[in-house]
Design a protein around this nucleic acid. Sequence first.
DNA 1: ACCTGAACACCGTTCAAGT
DNA 2: ACCTGAACACCGTTCAAGT
Lengths: 202, 202
Amino acid sequence: LATVANHSTARRGAPRSPGQRAGLTRGRVLATAHELLAERGIDALTMRALAERLGVSPNSLYSHVANKTDLVDALLDDVLAEVEAPPVDVDPVAGLHDLMASTHGVLLAHPDLVPLYVARQGSRGPNAQRLGEVMLALLDRAGVTGVQALEARRVLIVYTIGFAAFAVRPPFEDVGERPLPAAEVTANFESGLRWLLAGIAG
Amino acid sequence: LATVANHSTARRGAPRSPGQRAGLTRGRVLATAHELLAERGIDALTMRALAERLGVSPNSLYSHVANKTDLVDALLDDVLAEVEAPPVDVDPVAGLHDLMASTHGVLLAHPDLVPLYVARQGSRGPNAQRLGEVMLALLDRAGVTGVQALEARRVLIVYTIGFAAFAVRPPFEDVGERPLPAAEVTANFESGLRWLLAGIAG
DNA sequence: ACCTGAACACCGTTCAAGT
DNA sequence: ACCTGAACACCGTTCAAGT
């Protein structure tokens, strides 16, 4: 029997032969992928690098993940779990404001993932779905229903993800333009958000 | 001497030896890259596939393009040349509306490139710069200046690119949700655009 | 200056086999 | 079921050499 300890950082010297277990689980694969992404960025997140960090051969990942797309989809939805839903009795427009602001903040904390939300056209995982439903409930209480609610939700989500995507460097602008401090980006985001909410509720 | 004709589609059987010219130019490389992208999509746009379509060895592209990033940056800015600037004497808010609507339409016509605008954080090419200046001029005539103009421009650009990015499939929504027809997407885009413009001008 | 052949250092993924 | 070795079919890019 191998020793019980099997940290994600432990890259044992002793190689395994076929048939021996490495103690891999989907959860450990995803957790290590989050680590790798946070520490070394999106370009370093390869199946092979992930396998190496887990002390495992590259193809063994496919026992726990269908393919790289599946992996990335899971990472994207995981991050959305960090978004804070507002209290149920909140003023609906204020609730929408806070919900989008929280989403924006969470996305800013994971800058490498934001382009992937765009490339993969959002997320359809359970956390994304939950957020979408919270938004519809708030819109309903704000008097926006049916097709108009779907349109409003779409506008808010697109704006929020878009702003996070361009947080680091302003788009379409001079090279000389300074990279804005985070506080100014957030203030800028909230200006536009208020305009949208005024239009939606008005 | 080889025959004069050297179309981008002609993949001559006769191989060239080192020292023989293939008649490549940066313009022909970019034009063929646009073709490849339009016909076979972003995943098919590889340096090797591009070289093959040009009837040339992969490394020869590096005589006309610094690297793949340089290529993509050029493609991105090229597309922005299609955006129509409004007449100089237009009502400024209407002008902003039309400018962003034109940008949105152009982006929708090149869906594969949109995620790249996000990944590359916009474009800083000459066409992008021209658009940015037109926007500032319109904002100025609408009474929005200084830092507020930069913020307003940022909001409008981010919203426009973001909406184009999610045109095909709604983000954060149910799997059952139908993919919206283009006309509805455009109407949805313009609703949000009007809200933003009202906030900016108000 | 522009192009080729060959090579380098990677990728994601599949297949057969071992326990 | 879970893992390995080996391989497949790719990438972008560099280097030396040829005219």
